[in-house]
Write a protein that binds this DNA or RNA. Structure first.
Lengths: 334, 334
DNA sequence: GGCTTTTTGAGGCACGTCAATCATTTTAAT
DNA sequence: ATTAAAATGATTGACGTGCCTCAAAAAGCC
């Protein structure tokens, strides 16, 4: 069954081993007739290359890289943890994963990080800026496979995006917000930065659903908390003092500040946030948060690594391959 | 870095290659002192076995098997599809996946299927019965690694369970049901079979939350639809005729029947179901279903395969490894 | 026919590990 | 001290593919 080797193919096709090798690896200088003979033999024997032997022979080492923001947000910590957890199994497979951390929102620093890369494929979680798109193009032309991670750069040369559909996530949050909010009361949106594509897309999705289906609920202008706990706390408390809030949708990081603000508010709004971390987990348990939308970091990193390997091997990447499912956590399933 | 070989280890430890091999593969007949020397050299060089070379040398072929119910439910189809989608990449890695389908709820047939297995590891989705637990024990003692899949057999000898936490899924469904159901109206639960552990656990979780937090909502006795569309349709319509339903929690298969019933009901109850299939996807879009709880088949099969390989390699399996996250789909994110 | 160019075959080395044999040394038992 | 048992080293041959060289055969061209 799965045990035909190049030798079998050569014997069946009545050609030499070298010719089989030339055909299988597109080395050229083989007549069309011979190519057909070999391909027929491959089909007949059901030959499939033995990847282990191939990698051994060519001394293949997969040099992968993740470029992700620095900072101690719980989400980044989860990502790092997920990568570390897989590392042991990966080195046995000759996969070396290197992690580069850059300051969030610091485009120049991110460009510098991309410029200094030395690897076969890279997964990047960076800002959306022309300089960065140029740098992606340069990497691609230098033969490095590039995929975007968590935050997409749809207009760049990236070969794949691994992460959730942020518009859908925002829409889902809007749906739940509308259905949970029995009374009226305005809804506040707190993003990290509306210039960040992921946050912006979530906001758009949320706003779409609120307008389409829950138009009676007033939507306050979105605020930017810069992924900073103190800023988020201040913004939320100010908004709550201006008028009683019915709901809060926290689009990005800074959940610690949100928790602090909620503890100081008389009336508890329906609160939907992103990213399952110790902070948000505790807040769920204490009844401060109602829902946490979360992308599974383990799945995200595992998928990114798999796609990078597939890209290096030249395999087809289905369009859906990088899609990470969105998980929802309430107090009942943490 | 990742390039130390057994030769390096032997040189550093000042022992022979054969001795290094004996230590690394626990072949015995090595003195404690020598073992320590080798281990020190391994630590010093950072030696990690090259799995490709190892598998090549020992002609390793991973013979894996899935034992899952037959039948054309959408969920089973998704499972099969997910396995097929991975098959191409797997054979390059010398992983042969065989699928055995058994009649659902047919214990004797499942036992026979388990008895006829010839593989290194198997993932089973079967009924919970003493005969099956015995058969699992027999497989284990015959050196076959066994993990349960989608439905657990916690009292058996299985080495891992890959699937969602069904109690948590039921609790989550209960939480949403309570929050969506503004008015009163009784809630109907339709399971496939309450003897099936997964359905039973979901029901328990659902019931717990409803009693703890939404005690004012009456809960009708759970019905068994045997995963059969016609039966489900009949049961639901009968219940709806007896009294107007506020909500329906469909615990198992048979969603097609539920859709048919909903189309014939004057008042649309809040409907929460399991498994994202074409049927449930369309029902979501048409507003017949409110939520679909779903375990990601691709993730489940991929995880099961990975764990089977890890078991065969003798690697540690973290307790959490088999945990599949629960996805939630509403009309807004399909 | 003589010439060049393309195509093909044969062979070998390398990759790192496993698995086995056989000879030798060390250690333990009597 | 003798013998048995255990421990160790040295060596070798796979495993299947990639990649290279060299020579031979076939095809194309004038």
């Amino acid at each position: 069954m799965g045990n035909a080797t190049v030798h079998d193919v050569a014997r069946i096709a009545q050609v030499g081993l070298a010719t089989v090798d030339r055909v299988l690896n597109n080395r050229g200088n083989v007549s069309a007739k011979t190519v057909a003979k070999v391909q027929a033999a491959v089909a007949q024997t059901g030959y499939v290359r033995n990847l282990a032997a191939a990698n051994l022979a060519r001394q293949r080492v997969y040099r992968l890289c993740f470029v992700i923001p620095a900072g101690e947000t719980g989400f980044i910590a989860s990502l790092l943890h997920a990568i570390e957890a897989q590392r042991a199994a990966l080195i046995e497979d000759q996969v070396l994963v290197h992690i580069v951390q850059t300051r969030a929102f610091d485009v120049a620093g991110q460009v510098a990080a991309l410029r200094g890369l030395d690897c076969d494929a890279v997964a990047i979680m960076v800002s959306e800026a022309p300089d960065i798109q140029d740098e992606v193009a340069r990497l691609r032309s230098a033969g490095v496979h590039v995929l975007t991670f968590v935050a997409d750069l749809p207009r760049s040369d990236r070969e794949a995006y691994v992460g959730i559909d942020n518009v859908a996530a925002g829409r889902l949050a809007g749906d739940f917000m509308g259905r949970f909010l029995h009374g009226a009361g305005p809804v506040l949106m707190v993003a990290g930065s509306l210039a960040a594509r992921d946050h912006n897309e979530r906001m758009m999705g949320f706003r779409q659903v609120m307008q389409e289906r829950f138009a009676s609920l007033p939507l306050l202008p979105a605020m930017e908390g810069a992924d900073d706990a103190a800023t988020v706390e201040r913004l939320v408390l100010e908004a709550a003092q201006a008028q009683a809030l019915g709901g809060i949708y926290a689009i990005g990081a800074g959940n610690r500040g949100l928790v602090a603000a909620l503890r100081n508010m008389a009336q508890r709004p329906v609160t939907i946030v992103h990213e399952l971390t110790p902070t948000s987990r505790n807040a769920l348990r204490d009844g401060l948060f109602d829902l946490v939308l979360d992308q599974d970091c383990t799945a995200a990193t595992a998928t990114a690594i798999k796609i990078m390997r597939d890209l290096i091997e030249g395999r087809e990447i289905p369009a859906e391959a990088g899609k990470i499912r969105l998980n929802i956590h309430s107090r009942e399933n943490i």
